[in-house]
């Protein structure tokens, strides 16, 4: 992560880390989560689900900071993030 000015508590505070979970069968492929992911974790997958929609997949899962925005912006309740151990 780049910093404009090095924070004083950089050693003590670790950026939060999350893991994206995608419920593929609920997805309708609107790609809101892909567009509005602030860390660009997601991309549209090549494969499709039972209804024929391309669902997102996590291409850079290690970048997720557990901001829950994908969870909020998904109109299908098909994606959410869970907290992981903070980055070392």
């Amino acid at each position: 992560m780049k910093f404009w000015r090095k924070p004083l508590d950089l050693a003590a505070v670790r950026p939060a880390r999350g893991r994206v979970v995608i419920i593929e069968e609920r997805c309708k492929g609107c790609s809101f989560c892909i567009e509005y992911c602030s860390r660009e974790v997601l991309a549209l997958s090549e494969s499709f689900n039972r209804k024929g929609y391309h669902f997102p997949k996590a291409i850079k899962p290690e970048l997720c900071v557990n901001c829950h925005f994908c969870e909020a912006v998904c109109p299908e309740f098909a994606i959410f993030s869970v907290e992981e151990e903070a980055q070392a």
Partner: peptide
């Protein structure tokens, strides 16, 4: 996987009828 809002949703009716990219799902969430 269990979505964090699944306890407030009638999950047996999902996926819902709203079209791809409809804003109602966001408001509902």
């Amino acid at each position: 996987p269990v979505h964090p809002q699944d306890h407030l949703l009638r999950t047996d009716r999902l996926p819902h009828i709203w079209c791809t990219g409809c804003g109602i799902g966001i408001v509902f969430g």
